[in-house]
Every structure is written in structure tokens, then in C-alpha cells.
């Protein structure tokens, strides 16, 4: 090997010393890398050189930007900062950043992989003023539903937490926003494994354990579903006292006033894509009852029976849920009977 003159010469070539000459540029090394580059423009981010500390607003904006940081600790810290900033905000003053900025940025963290981040997120949600929630319900609900169907069990549980908070904060909006009623119901049904299709085969065993994860999760799901149905089906107890005397010449002033809700004409769907039955808005209780009766009631009743047989904590939750369903649908059946009797 390597005996021929040619090979020797080749080998030698590698170790030859480059000749340096006076007045000539130094020859480049064989391994030198060209680091020059061309650019149409070079933008330098401005450095803030102010001596005074950044305002809370600026810091909040900064932390909002950090929410998409790849480190989960950083995300959690930023959320924590925002939470404290909101909760320490003196009442009466506006928030350091408006809710309409905060909510759209933080809502995708519902699906975040880290448990700590999610728990912190819930704290942040709870610290937000309740009046700001209704206008963002549909977006939040979308994320919540995505979380409820998520593969990871703890994200699913967390999404239920969020839904509970949401029901508490803006219950009416949750059940009446576009797609909020039917889609969420469907979501619950598929989570609990209560499908109302007639085609289900007898051999397909309803694997209660697998479909809902462990029973603890299922209990939580049922509780949340009960809360959801309660908001949607049972009329709120607060009845506006009609004071006939004070507003004597005016009747039904409420109807003629400007609505206090945000986006009061959303049900007209002026600018969105056409809606189907699932994504329709169901603002009336009667509507919701009808849809519930058509689509979900049979499945829920059947599922409840099975759960009741199971007993234990699961049975208790099921009983509670059944009570809610009965209460919510009591007058609906009555209507149905009335219709039947009139016919």
C-alpha cells in the first residue's frame, strides 16, 4: 500500500507549506470558512436605555410574550407574575393589560403539557374580573372542548376544572354561545362513552373503565356535566321583581333597552360561515331542552342506569346527575303531554 510514486506525491501535498511572499495577501487556510453574508437590510432592535424601571404595563406585556417560551418554568413564572399583577391591582383602576389582550394569549395554555403551568393558568383565570369573561366565552369554550377530548388524562381533568370555572363565571353565555350547547354535550357523551347510536353492537362492551379513564375521572365528568346541565336546563332562580309602580307608563322596558350583553346580535350570524344544527346558538331554555331531548337524553338516561348499578361514589354522582336531568326536563315533558292532549 502506498508504494507508488504518485500516491506518495499525493500524500506529500497535504503537508506542503504554503509560500509566503512579501506584499502579497496571506494565503487562506484550507479549512477557512467564509463568514461574509449579504442582506438587503439589517435591522437592529432598539435597546431601551432608560434608567427608570419599566412600568407594570410593560412588564405585563413582556410576560405575555414569554407565555410561548419553550421552558415550562418560564411559562409558569410569567403566569404567576400576571396573576399577582391582576390580583394586586387596586379595585376601580383598569387592569395593567386589558382582559381582551390577556385571555386570547393565555387561553391556548389550557392544552399545555405541563401540569404546573395549567394549575397556574386556572389561578390566573380565577383572578380575572368576572365581567370580562362573557365576551370571550366561545373562544375559551373551544379550547376547553379541545382539552376535554385530549389524549392525556390530566389535561382532560384540567379542562373540566376550567369548564366549571367558566360555568361559574359566565354560565349563561356558555350554554347559549354558538356551538356551546350541542357540541359540549356531544363532547361529554363521547367522554363518558354514552353513545346514542342505535347501531352499536351488543358485542362492543361498554368498557366503563377504559372509556372514562378511572372512576375518579368519571365522577368528575359527571359532576361537571351536572353543573353544565343545571345551567342550561334549570331556569335561574333570580327573578327580576317587577315593580309596576315605579315604571308605570312603561311596560317591558327591558326589551326596549340596549342589551347589556356583548355582541347582542350574534345569533343573527351576520358575518360568520353558515351554521349547522351543532354549531347553532341556543339562547332559549326551551330550545336547549328540545335539542337535549332529541340528541342526548336517551343516551344519558341509559348511561346513568348503568352507572347507578355500579354504586359507590360513581353511583352518587350519577344520582345527582339524574336529579338535575329530571328537574331540568320536568316541564318539557309536561309540554309534550300538553301537545299530545291537545291533538
Amino acid at each position: 500500500m502506498g508504494s507508488s510514486a504518485k500516491k506518495k506525491k499525493e500524500k506529500k501535498k497535504d503537508f506542503q507549506k504554503p509560500k509566503l511572499k512579501v506584499g502579497k495577501a496571506k494565503p487562506k487556510a484550507a479549512n477557512s470558512t467564509d463568514t461574509s453574508f449579504k442582506a438587503k437590510s439589517i435591522a437592529l432592535k432598539q435597546q431601551s436605555l432608560s434608567t427608570n424601571a419599566p412600568t407594570v404595563e410593560a412588564q405585563c406585556a413582556h410576560h405575555l410574550a414569554l407565555l410561548s417560551h419553550k421552558s415550562e418554568t418560564q411559562r409558569r413564572e410569567s403566569l404567576a407574575y400576571l396573576t399577582t399583577a391582576i390580583s394586586t391591582n387596586p379595585p376601580g383602576l383598569p387592569l395593567p393589560q386589558p382582559s381582551s389582550v390577556i385571555i386570547p394569549t393565555v387561553q391556548r395554555l389550557i392544552l399545555d403539557g405541563s401540569n404546573g403551568v395549567r394549575q397556574q393558568l386556572l389561578k390566573l383565570f380565577q383572578s380575572l374580573p368576572k365581567a370580562d369573561i362573557p365576551s370571550h366565552t366561545d373562544q375559551l369554550l373551544l379550547h376547553t372542548r379541545a382539552g376535554m377530548t385530549h389524549l392525556a388524562t390530566d389535561i382532560r381533568i384540567f379542562a373540566l376544572d376550567v369548564l366549571e370555572w367558566l360555568l361559574e363565571a359566565a354560565g349563561d353565555d356558555v350554554v347559549s354561545c354558538a356551538g356551546g350547547w350541542v357540541k359540549t354535550l356531544k363532547c361529554f357523551l363521547s367522554l363518558l362513552g354514552w353513545q346514542n347510536d342505535a347501531t352499536s353492537k351488543w358485542s362492543a362492551v361498554k368498557s366503563a373503565g377504559k372509556a372514562g379513564g378511572d372512576s375518579k375521572l368519571q365522577v368528575k365528568q359527571m359532576n361537571t356535566l351536572a353543573a353544565f346541565l343545571k345551567v342550561g336546563l334549570i331556569p335561574s332562580q333570580v327573578v327580576v321583581p317587577v315593580e309596576a309602580g315605579t315604571t308605570f307608563p312603561l311596560w317591558h322596558t327591558e326589551q326596549h333597552m340596549l342589551s347589556k350583553r356583548s355582541n347582542p346580535y350574534a345569533h343573527l350570524n351576520l358575518f360568520g360561515p353558515p351554521r349547522d344544527e351543532e354549531s347553532e346558538m341556543y339562547e332559549d331554555r326551551e330550545d336547549r331542552q328540545r335539542v337535549f331531548h332529541d340528541r342526548a337524553e336517551a343516551a344519558i338516561v341509559a348511561g346513568l342506569e348503568q352507572a347507578l348499578k355500579g354504586g359507590g361514589e360513581l353511583g352518587r354522582a350519577a344520582a345527582q346527575l339524574r336529579r338535575v336531568v329530571k328537574e331540568g326536563m320536568a316541564d318539557y315533558h309536561g309540554e309534550d303531554l300538553e301537545e299530545l292532549s291537545t291533538q
Partner: peptide, 14 residues
């Protein structure tokens, strides 16, 4: 599969 499909639907809406 149904569960995955509902996950897909949620993400699609998003």
C-alpha cells in the same frame, strides 16, 4: 377512534 375524532373536531374549530 371516536374520541380521537372529537379531539380532531375541537382542534379543527380552533
Amino acid at each position: 377512534f371516536r374520541r380521537q375524532y372529537s379531539q380532531y373536531e375541537a382542534l379543527r374549530d380552533l
